[in-house]
Amino acid sequence: MNIVFKVKEQLATEDVLVMTHPVKQKEWPQFRQAIEQSGKMLTVINGKNNRNSQIPINSISSIESEDRLCNLRLVSGEMFLYNKRLKYVEEEFAVYGFIRINNQVIINCKEIEQFSATTNARIELLMKDGAAYFISRHYIKTFRRVFS
C-alpha cells in the first residue's frame, strides 16, 4: 500500500480527507479505527495515587466540573481529574465531538445511547456506560444543531 499526503485548503482544520480506490472501500472501517485510535493523548491526574497518566481523548465519556478541576469519566468507568476549568475544556474538546449540556457537564456525542424529552422542556440523555444526564433549556439549541 502506498501512502500519499496532499494539502486541500478547502478542508476545515479538524478534517482529514482519505481517498482510496473503490476496491479498498471494504477496508474503510479498519482505516477509520486506526486513525481514531491514534488520536490525541491527554495528561490527567489519577485521584487514587495523585500520579499523572496518559489517556486518549476518544476514551472519555463525559466531563464534569469540580471546583477548578474537571472529573473525566471514561468509557471503561474509570475517573480521572483534569487540571483545567470546564469553560476552557469546552473550547479545547469541541473539535473532538464534545458538547456542553448544562453548567456542570460536557459529553462525548459518540457515547450517547439514547435521548428523550422530559418535563420542563428538558432532554434526558442516557450514555453507553449507563450514566444519565439532563440537558438544560439553555443548551438545547446547541444540542439540536449538532444532531440535526
Results as ranks from 00 to 15, higher is better:
Gln114Asp: 13
Ala34Gln: 08
Val23Arg: 13
Leu86Pro: 00
Gly77Ile: 05
Ala94His: 11
Thr20Tyr: 11
Gln30Tyr: 08
Val7Tyr: 12
Val89Cys: 00
Tyr96Lys: 01
Phe80Tyr: 15
Asn83Ile: 01
Ser116Phe: 14
Leu69Gln: 11
Phe31Arg: 01
Asn46His: 07
Asn108Tyr: 04
Val18Ala: 02
Phe93Gln: 01
Thr20Val: 15
Lys84Glu: 06
Lys40Phe: 04
Ser53Ile: 12
Ser148Ala: 10
Val75Cys: 13
Glu113Gly: 09
Glu111Lys: 11
Glu113Asp: 14
Met79Ile: 07
Met19Asp: 06
Glu14Met: 04
Leu126His: 12
Tyr82Pro: 00
Asp129Trp: 11
Asn103Gln: 12
Ile3Gln: 10
Leu17Gln: 10
Leu69Ala: 08
Asp67Glu: 12
Ala117Thr: 14
Lys8Cys: 09
Asn49Cys: 09
Thr13Leu: 15
Glu113Thr: 05
Val7Gln: 13
Leu86Arg: 01
Lys8Asn: 13
Asn49Val: 07
Glu91Ser: 09
Glu66Tyr: 08
Leu86Lys: 01
Ser65Leu: 09
Val44Cys: 02
Phe115Lys: 08
Pro22Ser: 11
Gln33Cys: 03
Asn50Ser: 13
Met79Arg: 10
Glu124Asp: 03
Ile35Met: 05
Lys40Val: 02
Asn52Leu: 15
Lys84Ile: 00
Thr20Phe: 09
Ile63Asp: 00
Gly97Trp: 02
Leu69His: 12
Asn103Leu: 06
Thr118Gly: 10
Gln104Gly: 08
Val4Trp: 10
Ser62Trp: 02
Thr20Asp: 01
Cys70Trp: 03
Gln114Gly: 08
Lys141Thr: 08
Met1Trp: 05
Glu124Trp: 04
